[in-house]
Design a protein around this nucleic acid. Structure first.
Lengths: 133, 133
DNA sequence: TTTCTTGCAAAACATTTGCAAATCG
DNA sequence: CGATTTGCAAATGTTTTGCAAGAAA
């Protein structure tokens, strides 16, 4: 269990994730720590990210690719990734409840969580490559 | 490019994925190859899985956890994973088009693909642990 | 002083790569 | 022959772990 709460490294890492609006990976966080002049061990970064996730202060996203990304927006929302530039945006559009109910019915599962990843071409990339509209 | 099509290892690996209804990982495929008395190199398994995916003969699933899983059902469908036993089932319930349209509108993206992972408790686990209903 | 946290290096795990040997067309 | 595919081992990238040292309650 955790008894010491928001220790110094955890606080700094939370700040970094909160200040970043691009859903940074653990490696990104390590880079930004260095940029800010901090020296934190790999293990501590991962431990801190796990701690913050367990506390519900940030969310861990397992999108495409190998590395988990982290998101300081904890409200219920989904993500969309641009297949051209890799940028990740939030999707706040609410998931239709009747559809979820239908899936629960069809599958026999009781659904506790849904995780959606949309892929597409973001507005900027659509503007710069008209063929991708 | 690939000129030799469905070579022997690729054919055997396709068979294994087609015969398995539990969405095996690459490691599972390697195990099942051994069980069948075949000796195929790691790299060849991964190469073959990539080839089969590119050909559209199987689908690669990036669900929870580190390892990709592979699915011989190529029709459009989603997946649901049991948080108790880890079992993965198919979700054939169609995604509401008007909802996707709304997301495209809200985000400004043109959506080309959606990948959903539902989590919940499967029928068997619900039966055996009534608290999880 | 007991327990949790940090730091460092090494380990673990999935996947990819380099290169020589085998194979297909 | 010329190109691709295979096999093996080593490399890569991400995350975890073991353990000693440090810090908090």
């Amino acid at each position: 269990m955790s008894r010491y709460g928001l220790t110094t490294p955890r606080k700094i890492i939370l700040e970094i994730v909160s200040d970043s609006h691009d859903h940074p990976t653990a490696a990104d966080v390590i880079d930004r720590l260095k940029t800010r002049g901090h020296s934190v061990a790999y293990a501590t970064v991962y431990n801190s990210l796990r701690y913050l996730t367990e506390q519900g202060m940030i969310r861990e996203l397992k999108l495409e690719g190998d590395a988990s990304r982290y998101d300081a927006r904890t409200e219920d929302h989904q993500h969309i990734v641009c297949t051209e530039c890799g940028r990740v945006d939030e999707v706040m559009t609410k998931t239709p409840q009747d559809w979820l109910d239908r899936i629960a019915d069809d599958s026999g599962y009781s659904i506790t969580e849904e995780q959606m990843l949309f892929k597409g071409v973001c507005p900027s990339c659509r503007a710069s490559s008209p063929s991708k509209r």
